[in-house]
Amino acid sequence: MKIGSPPVALVETWIQLVRTENIDMEVRNRASKMLKEKIGDTVDILAYVKKHNLKIK
């Protein structure tokens, strides 16, 4: 996980944008890019979700 993790609310927003199918693909790609840049790879993102007890719908 990257140093200085982003706020939980921001990560929740990025995850929601990535998972919403009826949103422009450019928006989804940008949200995915931000998750990877600010948190790390998929394993790091899942660790962040677990650590902060986020609910993925």
Rank of each mutant, 00 (worst) to 15 (best):
Met1Gly: 15
Met1His: 15
Lys2Pro: 02
Ile3Ala: 09
Ser5His: 07
Ser5Leu: 14
Ser5Ile: 10
Pro6Gln: 05
Pro6Val: 10
Pro6Lys: 07
Val8Ala: 13
Val8Gly: 09
Leu10Pro: 12
Leu10Arg: 04
Leu10Glu: 15
Leu10Trp: 09
Val11Asn: 09
Glu12Leu: 12
Thr13Asp: 07
Trp14Met: 02
Ile15Ser: 01
Gln16Lys: 15
Gln16Gly: 03
Gln16Glu: 14
Gln16Pro: 00
Val18His: 00
Arg19Phe: 10
Arg19Thr: 06
Thr20Phe: 01
Glu21Tyr: 00
Glu21Asp: 08
Asn22Thr: 01
Ile23Met: 11
Ile23Asn: 01
Ile23Cys: 06
Asp24Asn: 11
Met25Ile: 06
Val27Ala: 13
Arg28Trp: 02
Arg28His: 06
Arg28Tyr: 11
Arg28Lys: 11
Asn29Val: 04
Asn29Lys: 13
Asn29Gln: 14
Asn29Asp: 14
Asn29Glu: 13
Arg30Glu: 14
Ala31Ser: 06
Ala31His: 05
Ala31Thr: 07
Ser32Lys: 04
Ser32Asn: 13
Lys33Ala: 12
Met34Phe: 11
Glu37Arg: 15
Glu37Val: 03
Glu37Asn: 13
Thr42Arg: 03
Thr42Val: 00
Asp44Gln: 08
Asp44Trp: 03
Ile45Leu: 06
Leu46Asn: 11
Leu46Ser: 12
Tyr48Trp: 14
Tyr48His: 05
Val49Leu: 12
Val49Tyr: 04
Lys50Ala: 10
His52Cys: 14
Asn53Asp: 11
Leu54Gln: 04
Leu54Cys: 12
Leu54Met: 13
Ile56His: 03
Lys57Arg: 10
